[in-house]
Design a protein around this nucleic acid. Sequence first.
DNA 1: GCACTCCGTGGAACCGGTTACACCATTAAC
DNA 2: GTTAATGGTGTAACCGGTTCCACGGAGTGC
Lengths: 344, 344
Amino acid sequence: MAHATIRDVARAASVSVASASRALNGHSSVLPATRTRILDAARELAYVPHAGARSLSTARAHAIGVVLPDLHGEYFSELVRGMVAAARARGFQLLLSNMHADPAQAAVALGAMRGRVDGLVIMAPDLAADALAASLPRGLPVVLVNAPAIAVHPSLDVENRAAATAMVRYLVETGRRRIAHIAGPMVNREAVARRDGFLAAVAEAGVSEAARVFDGDFDEAAGTAVGRHLAAEPALADAVFAANDNMAIGCLLALRDAGIGVPDRIAVAGFDDIPAARYITPALTTMRVDIADLGGRAMERLLQAIAGEPGPQHQTLHPELVIRASTGLANARHTRTKQERVRQ
Amino acid sequence: MAHATIRDVARAASVSVASASRALNGHSSVLPATRTRILDAARELAYVPHAGARSLSTARAHAIGVVLPDLHGEYFSELVRGMVAAARARGFQLLLSNMHADPAQAAVALGAMRGRVDGLVIMAPDLAADALAASLPRGLPVVLVNAPAIAVHPSLDVENRAAATAMVRYLVETGRRRIAHIAGPMVNREAVARRDGFLAAVAEAGVSEAARVFDGDFDEAAGTAVGRHLAAEPALADAVFAANDNMAIGCLLALRDAGIGVPDRIAVAGFDDIPAARYITPALTTMRVDIADLGGRAMERLLQAIAGEPGPQHQTLHPELVIRASTGLANARHTRTKQERVRQ
DNA sequence: GCACTCCGTGGAACCGGTTACACCATTAAC
DNA sequence: GTTAATGGTGTAACCGGTTCCACGGAGTGC
């Protein structure tokens, strides 16, 4: 006997399975004496209900499917942490699945969730709207994060475009004129939004003739390559704004290796505020995204939808400019920003 | 009609549910013509099998429960990444649950997995052996990671004690004599093993009279506090070995702030090799633990057990000494270590 | 004393799959 | 020509829960 079933419990307590089920689920219509007899039997047999069977008959799984792209370190863990906390608060568990950009694989990953979860949180920054729409299972609540909008589903997005614009404005305000951008992969809509925000801001500031976009892929090595290039031709730029911190750090290290002063000769800024941004020397100016909050809100919104509670159809998270030493501290006071005490 | 069931498919293809099931599962004994008729109907109806129902009748869930303590950033994501990759390779999904040190909560978290997963990977560095044993569900394959040994279950451990000893030996070889240790929380068996390794090594080297253990909790702030203390009384130590990188970084920054030269006056070493260890200045000497590998091996071992394949009862992962600038580079060549090219 | 309500309990259907077993139509073997 | 083996298909039981409905006994009002 591997596991006790509810019938075992019912037999041990000399009641029907119906009464056993009622007692175990706290239904009121069970005589106290009967109830305790059943609960005692359950404890005695170490009875644990079979989740699969229960979800079959109640059509509730008490689990949420989370489908993510290939994320890196801190971003992944913070996102999942936020989701776990929110789900746990309502007694839900998380079924994790990662999804590569391939739409066929996406469909498989989503299909495997059927009958196992009560809803899905999907993060799909590199999927086209039609591909995503086609692979969504029907009849299951869905919340989309950083994904193309699909009207019927609630969604959350990071305001990448405006944040990128704000970063460029800050760089211009501190006197930078020849600002370069290291872009992320263009299949990623966040990377596109950040680049667009950069382009809009340089145009607005009238420094567009000096602006330059380098291709990147969000990896540190891409930033290193750009850093080496700029070190060879320092006249090209007096500031670099990378689409994420990894690339900014690669660039910063390459410039440091080459003896180019940061921030004196070239300022460097990133996006995300990963932990390493604080530790690098000079510490990296960046746009902070509260990733755990993003995950938590997405989960919370999904659980609302499942419970039939009303909630916002769309939420936007606004990153926060964090000024550190890599862009210089001369013009330190800046509107709507947060400046940290700088070590050393 | 929210979702098509196998009976809908059978009706649409004018066959019995038995034939439909056989065709959909690739059983051989179905006439090709019948099979294609069924598959066509399934595609037409967008049929996706109900995982709960299937796991009820097959007693297979094709999912693995993962129960983790509260882990920090990089450690968590790398571990999960390794597990996801291994599970995915065999077509399994991950059900995630985090477990606090509280044994009662642990039992609840584990119980909720029943009937939902085919096995469990449990990481429990801060649970006592009897509490863990009591809350393990019966009849479910389990692999334990960094947890107290329970004879019947396969386990994986990081060789924390020997690694800590090796780190101290390295510090002694490079001329350090007054070595302090910042310990992790003593409810955590990894923290205990690292401290024990430290104590054994200083005793062996005959420098024990100068050795000193500071209490810590794995957080950066604990390292900062020790760093400030040492900065106030620099004669106390010429080297600090922290039980993890977070505390080592806190200590290093505090020393730097106070103007104490690292590594000239005091060497600093950590444990784990989180990404920030490479970025901090001076870069941190540490013990590298391949966390993704740890997760992957644990998952792989569990899947073997489920499949009835033989496998090792116990595996030990050996961290690797990574020498960087925070301990000085004078005595650079060291046995069985890896030295990185240092930037700058 | 009778009819009616209320309430605790049990029997059985049902959720959506899988599969043992029965069945029938071929074909092969004698 | 009869029997046996073979192989495709259908019927129904089963996995382990939940819940509708029926039933019987106690309590209440007349």
